[in-house]
Design a protein around this nucleic acid. Structure first.
Lengths: 343, 343
DNA sequence: TGTTAGCACTCGTCGTCATTGAGTGCTAAA
DNA sequence: TTTAGCACTCAATGACGACGAGTGCTAACA
């Protein structure tokens, strides 16, 4: 059976209707609301065909039909016209970045907030992924006689700093010497390239204070090895807006899903390449997500992918809005970060 | 009417029962489950009295009775025996602190996690409050020709650092001079004591680079004025465990409540003084909380209160468990922080 | 005088059953 | 090929009665 022009128009009508109402849609509804110039009986026949072809599903005999994941996929790939954001929405976003924000965490956090505000879905933002981050500067700053601060500055703003205990008898000069060595070793390397063996030499040189060097090694390796899966959320309770989550059990399992950072991390970080990725229902590799869709994109500094942003909602999602928001947001964020920290 | 011995014992039985079952409790239940040596009819009479006195309420005529906020208050103040934590629970907590953790945020975050694990309620932890934090060290660390890092080290670990743009023609020495001045001005002052006017002199001295000084002033004032209400949560979805929150509307409003950071901040930060504060239902100053109870305590470094920890749950809360967990946690956290950053 | 057994009464919950109405599939006519 | 018409399905809704947990009151009892 072929998916001819009329079938497509009917399918589109059904998807549009279901996305906005969340109710299974019947032939009469389509005939009345969308002027397709045919009667409900004809639509009924076509719907029967569409079901046979796998684009529609029927919750039960006497109900209308709902789009299948296959239908959404078709919709996203072929039917949907990505409408650009409203003026005020792009204004909002730009405004957010105009306020000088010095902490990258703050930027990330606001990004999540604004994404969920615009789309009304739950947004997820992965903070910059360690491996791709380049060390620009390492410095040991003395605090008092017992403590020093190991500051690691990266091309994505300051990333992490760690308080390290130091032996009492060490002075600022000594710390500076260590800083210099660390800088020589690691400057302009990414965390992925950090090789702790390089420190063996340092250890030898500072044999007298091997425990200090050990502490430093610990601190460094903490940063690049630690599954530092910082995830920021926006609009976590938006899910309650959707009738399909009026059930406490489902709402709860959705919210628990958000706590599965490992899983979200894998999901979002696999979204590679340029542009926006849409993953619909059962296309997701995880059981828990078979009734959710995820729209994601990556953000970068220059050409280097730093992290991902995404939104998650029911498969019945306003894809056109979601995709355009995601696209605009990823680009704006990348542009902003690049202008701040890029080479 | 007097609250005699027998009334008290009956009241206690009712509260205990209701806390564990969430069902209105009737006279027969009490007579059967708790051996008070009197018949259900007698208990019925007493319950009638207790209702008249304001300790009990009846959802409807043919239901059992539930404790009022007044009853819980009486329970917390007079009846409850605080049982100490189980060995394994205290072990868990100690274990958490034994793992060397360098970032105070991490400590706070884990504290929230473990509190919710132990109590099964939602935990809320206020990160250290700015006003009480003492500056130990300020340093401008050069990163590259355009950027420097303003590091403010406090007695609560490193608190904040900000990337500031600097004019191209400034060298490390120059930054050091500024750092020294800032240190002289603010070392050992709390953020609450920071007076930006002091910087006027600095501005004059560095008139050539007044824009840099402005940036620094901005950055500093950001830190102490910004309502930096960092709140960490644990067990946000625990609320779904309770039958009274099986209703989506209520669950949602609870979760939305958690996003009201201003409100939570006020609630928790008012809990001053030593020991554990319990705030029951309508005792809370906010409408939204009239069916919740909050158990909170403060944590400190030395004698200086830094922030608060709390748990929030239904008024039907296991107060004895909650109070003991809170007490132990606050003390342990304070002890740990003091040993790290104290004096 | 306090305690208790007994009983009528209240009222929310639960299961049953009939009604309703949205929607389908099929058939026959246009 | 399209459409009107019709029988059929089935979830949702609401009415109704049975049930039972719980109360308050009364009268008898220790």
């Amino acid at each position: 059976m072929r998916l001819d022009e009329r079938k497509i128009r009917i399918l589109q009508a059904i998807i549009d209707d279901f996305i906005s109402t969340a109710e299974p849609v019947g032939s009469r509804t389509i005939a009345k609301k969308y002027n397709l110039g045919v009667s409900s009986a004809t639509i009924r026949n076509e719907m029967s065909d569409l079901e046979e072809m796998g684009y529609l599903e029927q919750p039960h005999t006497s109900a209308g039909r709902i789009p299948s994941d296959k239908a959404y996929r078709f919709y996203v790939d072929r039917l949907m016209k990505v409408k650009s954001l409203k003026k005020e929405e792009t204004e909002n976003i730009k405004q957010m970045y105009r306020n000088k924000i010095s902490q990258i965490e703050q930027v990330i956090c606001n990004t999540a907030k604004i994404l969920s505000d615009i789309t009304n879905y739950t947004s997820i933002v992965l903070a910059p992924q360690m491996n791709s981050i380049v060390i620009k500067h390492i410095q040991l700053v003395p605090i008092d006689s017992r403590l020093a601060l190991l500051v690691i500055v990266t091309n994505a703003g300051i990333l992490k700093d760690t308080v390290v205990k130091i032996p009492e008898d060490i002075d600022a000069d000594y710390l500076n010497r260590i800083s210099n060595i660390l800088n020589k070793l690691y400057k302009n390397k990414s965390f992925g390239q950090v090789n702790l063996d390089d420190l063996a030499g340092v250890r030898k040189e500072f044999a007298r204070n091997s425990s200090l060097v050990d502490t430093l090694i610990d601190a460094l390796s903490d940063h690049y090895s630690k599954s530092d899966k910082d995830i920021y959320y926006g609009g976590t309770t938006n899910i309650f807006n959707f009738p399909e989550y009026q059930d406490v059990v489902r709402a709860r399992s959705f919210l628990n899903l958000l706590e599965e950072k490992e899983l979200l991390y894998k999901l979002l970080s696999k979204a590679e390449g340029d542009g926006v990725t849409v993953s619909i229902g059962t296309e997701n590799p995880y059981e828990e997500l078979r009734e959710c869709s995820i729209v994601s994109a990556t953000y970068k500094i220059g050409d280097r992918v730093l992290g991902s942003i995404g939104i998650i909602g029911p498969t019945r999602m306003e894809y056109s809005k979601a995709v355009s928001a995601m696209d605009y947001m990823a680009k704006t964020l990348s542009y902003y970060l690049t202008s701040l920290y890029g080479k």
